[in-house]
């Protein structure tokens, strides 16, 4: 076991981990964050996406021990006390069905809108291409991101 100190959703946490434990498992089982989901466990589906220092990553492909000193944001951290404009748009456009991929999709879309507040459709598709959704056919997700981007002032 090794100690890892990191910042999770703006709170400093220190935990004991085995080197082989993934960030996904540690977030879910030791840090109480259930929004990152396990879908494929090999980086193909994006359901486990979280932000590390503002960049989206696959938490199933990262050992928790690698994250010493880093800032990790999960969907819980984005939701906070009030849902974001993007999240409200997801609700408005039915941009989810079963909801299992939603946390990862919102992480990716949040990263996109931060670096590119007014993306075009192709840029949205590109940014989401690593998040598999089996239910929606993606169009409602594009609609929500376009709406949220319009609500973000130019």
């Amino acid at each position: 076991m090794a100690k890892v100190k990191l910042t999770l959703n703006n709170e400093t946490r220190t935990i004991d981990v085995e080197p082989c434990e993934t960030l996904l498992d540690v977030l879910r089982d030791k840090l109480g964050m259930k929004s990152p989901k396990c879908g494929c466990d090999r980086g193909d589906c994006g359901a486990c996406a979280v932000l590390i220092d503002g960049k989206s990553v696959r938490s199933c492909l990262i050992f928790a021990i690698e994250c010493e000193g880093q800032h990790i944001t999960t969907l819980e951290g984005i939701s906070g006390d009030q849902l974001s404009i993007l999240q409200e748009a997801f609700i408005e456009f039915n941009s989810f069905q079963c909801g299992y991929c939603a946390p990862g999709v919102i992480i990716s879309a949040t990263e996109l809108l931060k670096s590119n507040p007014h993306p075009n459709l192709e840029e949205i598709k590109e940014a989401l291409s690593g998040n598999l959704c089996r239910c929606t056919g993606y169009q409602p997700i594009f609609d929500a991101i376009l709406k949220a981007s319009k609500e973000t002032k130019k």
Binding site: G43, G46, A49, K55, S56, V57, R58, L61, I62, S108, E111, L112, E126, A127, S129, G130, N131
Partner: peptide
């Protein structure tokens, strides 16, 4: 190569 979440890493 892959997608954004992989390319970031």
């Amino acid at each position: 190569v892959a997608s954004v979440g992989i390319r970031n890493r």
